[in-house]
Write a protein that binds this DNA or RNA. Sequence first.
DNA 1: ATGTCAAGAAGATCTTGA
Length: 256
Amino acid sequence: MKIVSYNVNGIKARLPRLLEYLTEQQPDIVCLQELKSSDETFPEADIRAAGYGAVWHGQKGFNGVAVLARGADPVERQRGLDGEVEDDHSRYLECDVDGLVVASIYLPNGNPQPGPKFDYKLRWMERLAQRARALLAAEVPAVLAGDYNVIPNDDDVYSVQAMADDALMQPGSRAAYRALVAQGWTDALRIRHPQGRVWTFWDYQAGAWQRDAGFRIDHLLLSPAVADRLVEAGVDRDYRGREKASDHAPTWAQIR
DNA sequence: ATGTCAAGAAGATCTTGA
């Protein structure tokens, strides 16, 4: 079973790329981020025609997450995180699918830092940690897949110096991510590729793709029971180099 | 030093948020 996290950076602009990916790779479960689409304009018919059921949590203009399943309809468990009633960003969607609990996560970017956006990022990470703790306590097989907007370690970025002041690799962001993983989650990419330098994102600017100047910010965190079933994990880099590509590549884990 | 993209609101470009 192939489970994918894919920040599409606009599902309308990326629909040809997404449908092509579904057809070519036939992933079983796909967590999408940055739909940049309202609930009403989500291209449900096109995705269903490609053989996928979907649940989505849209927002006009930015954010937005979805869970897709091949030949099945994901069943929604929760949209949004508890703990901040005034938070109206569409960044968390949790579903039951194929016997797994699967969450699609679009963690706040947090730039510029310091500032209110970075404070929001850290608060959101604490709220995510509470939800993740509850999932582990319930002992459900779970996958938390998404764009975490966190570069976990120095070997997860092409240049520590270039990104030193970025919200994605501040000590606070890293500590929160480390604490989340330490609850008992397995970072699928890192466990399968311990040597690092596995990029999931390349900026559109400054020829980052051509220079392979990327970083690793899309992560699949596996609960213990799912981690026991992990076969392989990787990045479908090829899709980053195609016409009208997202700045993220599909990132995946293969589960027995 | 920095070479981009998508969407929305306005209005034939600018702002926001990556």
